[in-house]
Design a binder for these strands. Structure first.
Lengths: 138, 138
DNA sequence: ATACGACCTCCAGCTACTGTAGGAGCAAGC
DNA sequence: GCTTGCTCCTACAGTAGCTGGAGGTCGTAT
């Protein structure tokens, strides 16, 4: 008990490892509810906000886009929702990550092949430049 | 001989598989030189422009950022430059791709682990939501 | 009283484009 | 010579997810 029930935005930032501007950005985007304000207009946060922000950050660190985070938050807010929807969002995201890895791996192979062909002369006979030059077109 | 020496922007777009707006964007960003204009102000392109744009697109398809493409173009423009600079740019890019793949792979493992723990109940005991919730903080 | 930090709102910038609005030009058909 | 339809022009807003800064206010410690 008796812990700080009211946090300023800077405290929340420090607690969650989030930049102050980012917290405001999340409020703006509806991920965090509009915070109460003091008479002077300063944001005031409670424990529930800390938990919510931590949830957001954890989701983001797993790469979920903000739209997905929004959906996850909505689901998490209602304990009676079926877990299935959560699972689906996560699987879609996993598929997306797999797609990105596949793309990058293909890119990596190609680039590696190109680099391997370089024989350290001048640009005139550089295989890398040659590869980048137009071939398919002419 | 006798091929179209003067192309309109739409022709160049079709030839290189680039959108018209993207070509203008490259001109704006100095990747393509400012094209000559007709009396009516329309851009006119020659073969050299086609080659340059093809080079840009090929570089981009290998994932080089525009800054790197700019450097590669500068190097490619002078056949006497040592190939070493080209090689260096390519290797830096390769390292960056490797970094991204490593990050995504780590993300993928973590996400896969999280998804695997889901037992298809309600959100109340959903392991995914639980994982996303604050643990380290409280 | 004043200095300092933390806070406020609003806005520009990052990457690499993409799409749209609002207009003008051009070639073909009638 | 006029209309139709396509292409072109400039200029700007929007995408994702923040980040940083300007210019101003507030709170507190000295």
């Amino acid at each position: 008990m008796a812990e700080a029930a009211h946090l300023a935005i800077g405290d929340l930032a420090r607690l969650t490892g989030t930049k102050v501007n980012t917290i405001r950005f999340y409020e703006e985007g509806g991920l965090l509810p509009r915070a109460e304000r003091t008479a002077a207009g300063r944001r005031v946060y409670r424990d529930a906000d800390t938990r919510r922000l931590a949830f957001i950050r954890q989701s983001r660190s797993l790469g979920f886009p903000l739209d997905a985070v929004r959906e996850l938050l909505t689901l998490a807010d209602d304990a009676n929702q079926p877990c299935e929807a959560v699972d689906r969002i996560a699987r879609v995201h996993l598929a997306e990550i797999d797609r990105k890895i596949a793309n990058l791996s293909a890119l990596r192979s190609e680039l590696d092949r190109v680099i391997g062909s370089c024989r350290q002369g001048t640009v005139a006979d550089c295989k890398i430049i040659e590869t980048l030059g137009p071939r398919a077109i002419f």
